[in-house]
């Protein structure tokens, strides 16, 4: 299981990583949409957690480009953003996202949303 976190805030990427630390998955990180597209192409993640407001390339542009790419368009995306306006959410929903989590957020809310989309398995602890 591979999950890609795309957020310009290292703090948020750290929280995403901490949320997933007890699960059997690899976390990849990108700090903007351009890096996110490159990471999506090279890493082929099972899920992308995507912010909206980022420098270089924002999350809406990245999502649009992702959906235009036949090799990447099927990757499920969860938006993790402080932006929750009705029109914004409707616009992003039309681009195709599996879920939407508004910042501030609790780590267990994030895990719940991820767990509805991919099969998160607890990490096996060596006896």
């Amino acid at each position: 299981m591979k999950i890609l976190s795309v957020d310009d805030s290292k703090t948020i990427r750290m929280i995403v990583g901490r949320s997933l630390k007890n699960y059997d998955c690899v976390l990849c990180e990108a700090a903007n949409g351009e890096e996110g597209l490159a990471a999506a192409a090279s890493e082929k993640p099972d899920l992308i957690i995507l912010d909206i407001t980022m420098p270089v390339m924002d999350g809406v542009t990245m999502l649009t480009k992702l959906r235009e790419d036949p090799a990447l368009k099927a990757i499920p995306v969860v938006m993790l953003t402080a932006e929750s306006g009705r029109e914004n959410v409707a616009h992003i929903a039309r681009l195709g996202v599996r879920d939407y989590l508004v910042k501030p957020f609790k780590e267990d809310e994030l895990i719940e949303k991820i767990g509805r989309i991919v099969n998160l398995q607890p990490k096996l602890v060596a006896a």
Partner: peptide, 17 residues
Amino acid sequence: GEFCNMVSGRLKSSLSD
């Protein structure tokens, strides 16, 4: 920056609504 982003993002969304 991120905390400011959370407050601003929610304000932006409410203003838009």
